[in-house]
Design a protein around this nucleic acid. Structure first.
Lengths: 283, 283
DNA sequence: CCGATATATGTAGCAAAATTACAGTATTTC
DNA sequence: GAAATACTGTAATTTTGCTACATATATCGG
């Protein structure tokens, strides 16, 4: 919790002298963080150890540590919290909230991601004969994005967002082929079936989905992320963002694994689409 | 400016030893603020005064003052700096870097976005007879995502990622129709042509693209975001993320504008796809 | 290429700040 | 009202950060 709020809240539990300290700090926190313990003690008209004890009472290691905590809580409000959009939010408010929630979600996703699995996934991908990305509904855009990224590596790669095509492609796959399934919930029936089918054909299945979901159980490798999501009214957006970043991580890992000579390829692809653009003016 | 970014930005202006300090701090700012000057000096393998000088160079009064500033910048806006992936980064390193860069970009995008224009865009969208989302290449996934979101509002909406279809659809559009064009650079020839064509047919053109680009000049409404991007080797990912969030913002604005009765619709759509999923087990 | 100047880095001693131990004072409780 | 407990302050100790100076490294003009 915010340190400043904490002080406010526990005003009652302080002793007489400690409250003096609290009041001085609350009156002017900015001054407080730029003062020494001696200066603060003088302002509150107490002794230095009292200030120190005050800090300890707030679960800090001492005065310097306390100042650090206070400084953090002074820095503009609480930043990346999952703030919900209200009925009566103006454009300014809901824009900020959505951007900030998105960032908060990415943060959560990042820390829940297992990098060991990422590494193994990259391993599998680099050794694949053919890579297929499958997604349905909202997840299909992630699959498309993945196609776009891996296409540039100049390896056989495909993407389907159609149940039938997925099924057909799956039947034709075999050992050495990697199928990447993308589903937020991991409960979309047809994708789970695809996973089973693929494994029966000895293809490797990597899924970007929820932990412990039916799809996860049918996969060889599961890349799961815990993303706080309010799916009630506003759309399941956060998980998609996280998945996109994850795809980027995989593509980056792929590039790194393949080494420098490979990066030349990317430049070539870039050059080749240059002609379809207006040249950037030289200011 | 954010202290952490400041360090990142002025990396070049530091001397050899000072850079060592900078790197140690960037690698783990949280550790840095909880260390003494001696500990930090040891970590960076430099002398204590060097650390002190480093602090002074960043316009702080000294080490404790520097820690305060750093602490604030960690709590405050962006704890995330745009860190580039290195050749020899392990899975752990590049995963963190990509996630953090993504967050930093979203933050930058957020602050460069003009909410007034957002509001007007929402206005236009709510009054549209038909909404079309066009994108090419990487941007097509954003268009698809937009389709997915706006489709649930139960209004005529379409999406094309093919030049011909875009052109054909464009010719059939007229007053009251809104065309949303998505292009990171705003220099893709065919999209610029589409914009011109659409306006000739009295359709309204909203573009999610770069400021002052050819596409921007041909549009009625421009939603531009400044996103720092290293397009050299790794893919133009950040802008897409930002665009996705922006689409989410638009969809949210749309929902809010339409009011509560409308939100019921979303729930209905959600229910209708329930059957295609495995039920979540009740733990 | 060399010496001279400027710049960068480290060492050692010093000043200050924070913490601890201890002692005195107020407060509570029986 | 006395003993116990909790609170607060003084003084000593330790830690921390800073300054002055010395050494090393780099830069530049001749």
């Amino acid at each position: 919790m915010n340190t400043l709020e904490k002080i406010q809240k526990s005003l009652d539990s302080f002793s007489k002298s400690e409250r003096k300290v609290a009041e001085v700090i609350l009156a002017s926190p900015q001054t407080a963080i730029h003062s020494s313990i001696a200066a603060l003690a003088k302002m509150a008209d107490v002794s230095e150890p009292t200030v120190n004890r005050f800090c300890r009472r707030l679960d800090t290691k001492g005065f310097p540590d306390f100042k650090l905590h206070l400084a953090q809580s002074l820095a503009n409000g609480t930043p990346y919290v999952n703030r919900h959009v209200d009925e009566d939010d103006g454009p300014d408010a809901y824009t900020s909230k959505i951007f900030e929630s998105s960032m908060a979600c990415l943060d959560a996703a990042k820390s829940s991601l297992d990098t060991q699995t990422v590494n193994r996934a990259v391993d599998v991908l680099t050794q694949a004969n053919k890579i297929s990305f499958f997604g349905l509904g909202a997840s299909s855009s992630v699959a498309h994005d993945a196609l776009n990224k891996f296409f540039r590596f100049n390896i056989p790669v495909q993407c389907f967002d159609d149940i039938l095509m997925q099924r057909m492609s799956c039947i034709n796959s075999g050992e050495g082929d990697v199928i990447v399934l993308i589903s937020h919930t991991g409960r979309t029936k047809s994708l789970v079936e695809i996973a089973t089918l693929a494994r029966e054909n000895d293809a490797t299945v990597i899924s970007l989905t929820a932990k412990d979901s039916p799809l996860a159980r049918e996969s060889n490798l599961v890349l799961s992320m815990d993303v706080p999501e309010d799916t009630d009214i506003y759309m399941p957006m956060a998980s998609r963002l996280a998945q996109l970043v994850l795809v980027d991580v995989l593509a980056t890992g792929f590039t790194l694994r393949r080494g420098i000579k490979f990066r030349e390829n990317l430049k070539k692809v870039k050059e080749s689409i240059k002609d379809s653009r207006f040249e950037k003016p030289n200011f």
